[in-house]
Simulated scan of single mutants.
Amino acid sequence: MIEFKNVSKIYNINKSPFHALTDINLTIPDGAIIGILGKSGAGKSTLLRMVNGLITPSQGEILVDSRALHSLSEREQRFMRHTMGMVFQNFNLFQTKTVYQNIEIALKAIATPKSERKAKIEAVLEQVGLSSKIHSYPQQLSGGEKQRVGIARALITNPKYLLCDEMTSALDPKTAKEILDLLQIIHQQYRLTIIFITHQIEAVMHLCQEVILMEQGRVTHRSTTLDLFLHLDNVATSTYLKPIVYDVPIEHDHVYQLIYVGAILQEKSILSHMIRHFSVDVNIIHAKILLIGKERLGYLYLQILGKNQNQAISYLREQGIIVNSMENTRLLENIDYAN
């Protein structure tokens, strides 16, 4: 388990204090996949580098497996770092070394006997799907293959924690999805704790069980990833959700946003019953289904007209559907996109 207790990081820039992190209190349980989402400069990477001791806090303390990092000796810190694999956005591969040699560096760092290295490297390359590239150089690899080498190098020391810093940001969507699928397989097999830093909400949707939002060095929101998409009336979260859910202005009156999990509308014929029973007219403005992990989440924008409109909406809510009035709140409108 990783714990942040009142952690702040302050840099002096041109004799003025810059608060990179302010009063961070977080607990990351073992075996979780946590996404930390935020714009550039939000403090995500600073927070991640504090976990493995690359950056020390100005205030507060960080505990890994109940041990405060600041209390560890230099030797103990080195040992602690070996329990953490790190994967970077820009791959960090040595261009003059082969795939084998790039991974071997991590084994040398923990003094693995030379006689054991070959079998370990071959096994981890098979796991990441790169057995045929064992003697290739980085310039002979695609971006996705380079990132798989980075993952293999991070896994070779059998870490308990996997720290991922914007690792899919430089990849095309198809390749990024393949990398995220690979991380899911690795997590299922080893039950690693994965901390995934990103500014891409699509990556969080696909991979992460929980999401932490950061802004200007502070934590502004934490929830399950599914819960993030169930509540769009929060400006801080809507900033990220607008491009994903619906970014077309609502130009009609009496429009409602329905949010539901799974196939509840189809399974129970809720809309058909509502129309017949309450004698309301319904126009579909927009509809979308998102996949959040393995859960389907539906968004339906309806114009509901008729004298029994309020009763119809109450009925929808009784069926477990979240109903938001777009008239009253104008959700998702006039909200800036995330950078």
Rank of each mutant, 00 (worst) to 15 (best):
I2R: 00
F4I: 00
K5H: 11
V7C: 10
P17N: 11
D23I: 14
G31I: 02
G35N: 14
S40F: 04
A42Q: 10
M50A: 01
G53M: 00
L54C: 01
S58T: 15
V64C: 06
D65V: 02
A68P: 00
H70W: 15
L72R: 09
S73V: 09
E74A: 14
Q77F: 08
Q77N: 05
R78C: 00
H82F: 13
T83M: 01
T83L: 01
M86C: 13
M86K: 06
N92M: 00
V99F: 11
Y100M: 12
A106L: 12
L107C: 12
L107K: 09
T112P: 13
P113G: 04
K114N: 08
K114L: 09
S115W: 08
R117T: 09
K118S: 09
E122Y: 00
Q127P: 10
G129D: 08
G129L: 08
S131Q: 15
S131P: 06
S132V: 06
H135D: 12
S136L: 08
S136W: 04
P138V: 03
Q139V: 08
S142L: 00
S142A: 05
S142E: 07
E145T: 14
K146M: 02
V149N: 05
P159S: 01
S169R: 01
A170T: 04
K177L: 15
D181P: 14
Q189E: 06
Y190P: 07
R191N: 15
L192E: 06
T198H: 11
Q200P: 12
I201C: 06
E202D: 14
I212H: 04
I212T: 09
H221L: 09
H221F: 11
H221D: 05
R222A: 03
T224F: 07
L230V: 05
L230Q: 10
N234P: 06
V248Q: 12
E251C: 02
H254N: 15
Y256R: 12
Y260T: 01
S269M: 15
S272I: 01
I275A: 12
S279T: 12
S279K: 13
V280E: 12
I285G: 07
K288E: 06
L290A: 02
I292Y: 02
G306R: 11
N310E: 12
A312L: 04
I313S: 06
E318F: 03
E327F: 10
T329K: 15
R330D: 15
L331T: 02
I335N: 06
N339C: 12
N339A: 14
